[in-house]
């Protein structure tokens, strides 16, 4: 059991070494030592080639291109979703105005009209306290 664990650890350490070599993470001395071992140790070389074949295989996977009509499909989906409001030609005219802005504008309009039209006169209000003199038909006579 211990032997199996040791082999596993050794393999992981070796894979780590291969990985560092591929990533250029080895120091110049370690790099030189690695290359020397590759030349002289057949088993080590075979193990490295196996590891490299995976990374090389990944890099060699063919590039997959988007379908030819991709750009048009995206454009039309954006137009549909935004009901034609998205792009600049009609963006400003048709874009939605947030209700907070509408609310603020309304408050400003009301405040300005309040001041422009004038505050109700106190004097006029005072006049209302006096009872109006009513002329009766007898008084007329």
């Amino acid at each position: 059991m211990n032997e199996a664990n040791n082999i596993e650890k050794e393999m992981t350490a070796q894979d780590l070494l291969f990985n560092d070599f591929l990533e250029g993470d080895l120091s110049p001395e370690e790099h030189a030592k690695f290359e020397e071992r590759l030349e002289n140790d057949e088993v080590f070389k075979r193990e490295y080639e196996q590891f490299f074949s995976v990374v090389g295989g990944l890099r060699a996977l063919p590039f997959t291109f988007a379908p030819d009509d991709f750009v048009n499909t995206v454009q039309s989906r954006i137009r549909t979703r935004s009901r034609g409001r998205f792009f600049a030609d009609n963006y400003l005219l048709t874009s939605r105005i947030p209700y907070e802005v509408v609310g603020l504008v309304m408050i400003l309009v009301m405040i300005s009209s309040y001041f422009m039209m004038g505050v109700p006169h106190d004097a006029k209000i005072k006049d209302l306290n006096k009872l109006p003199k009513l002329q009766t038909p007898t008084q007329k006579l």
Binding site: F63, T64, F65, A66, F70, V71, V74, Q75, I78, F86, F87, A88, D89, Y91
Partner: peptide
């Protein structure tokens, strides 16, 4: 600025990378 040509340019530039 919602320039439609810019959006087309962006999609054309990145469509294959994103798709892949």
């Amino acid at each position: 600025r919602r320039d439609e040509d810019a959006f087309t340019e962006l999609v054309k530039t990145y469509q294959h990378k994103v798709f892949n």
